[in-house]
Computed example of a mutant assay.
Amino acid sequence: MAACVTGFLTGLSLILAIGAQNAFVLRQGLLRAHVLPLCLLCALSDAVLIAAGVLGFGALTQALPGLPRVMALGGAAFLLVYGAQRLWAAWKGDYGLVLSGRSAPLGATLAMGAAFTWLNPHVYLDTLGLVGAVSTQFEGSHRLAFGLGATTASFVFFFSLGYGARLLAPVMTSAASWRVLDTAIAAVMWTLAAGLVLSA
């Protein structure tokens, strides 16, 4: 039980920081569009990565020392482009479709969610590196319990964020509100991208 709780708290502490993936889930939650499949995609992706981390997949980065830099630069490029898209949307201020509750199609939404998950170098550091490292203090079934706890944290977080976002819906009833949100998201994306470039 202690291993499971430790895994849950470890996973939750790593995922709470506002990042690109979280901001995207929040935005879709506000739109109330494709929330269930998007949350499932993010949580299941985390589950795969956490399992890999607990099983010792972190050794891959030791075998391929150049991999973290390639991942960092690729992730930075993606974040720069998405940040520019959000800033462009804020500048145009045309939120008719958003205010009517319309979103990108399911396929496009899931593709974007997958990109935010799998092109983000931080997710590998958190799941393969940090979660994997903490899991080494447990053996056998206790390590499995730790991994299950960390995976549960991801499911709880993403579904709480996706469905809890509707509590903010009354505030997001004007183009001005969405302009502020998109500007903030662009700032987060570019800040994360700058950090990735500097660390590469």
Results as ranks from 00 to 15, higher is better:
G7H: 05
L9P: 08
G11N: 11
L12Q: 07
S13D: 06
I18V: 14
G19S: 08
A20E: 07
A20L: 03
G29N: 00
L30V: 07
H34M: 03
P37D: 04
A47F: 05
L49Q: 02
A52R: 02
G53E: 00
G53Q: 01
A59V: 13
L60G: 00
A63K: 04
L64G: 01
G66R: 10
M71A: 12
M71G: 02
G74T: 12
G75P: 12
V81L: 13
G83I: 13
Q85H: 06
R86C: 15
R86L: 15
W88Q: 14
W91A: 14
K92M: 01
G93S: 06
L99Y: 10
L99K: 06
P105K: 09
G107N: 11
T109I: 06
T109L: 04
A111I: 09
A111D: 04
N120R: 11
L125A: 08
L128F: 13
G129W: 05
V131C: 00
T136H: 04
F138D: 03
E139M: 03
G140I: 11
S141Q: 13
R143D: 08
A150S: 12
T151C: 09
S154Q: 03
V156A: 15
F158I: 14
G162S: 04
P170K: 06
S177W: 15
D182H: 06
A184N: 03
A193P: 13
A194L: 15
G195P: 14
L196R: 10
V197K: 05
S199F: 13
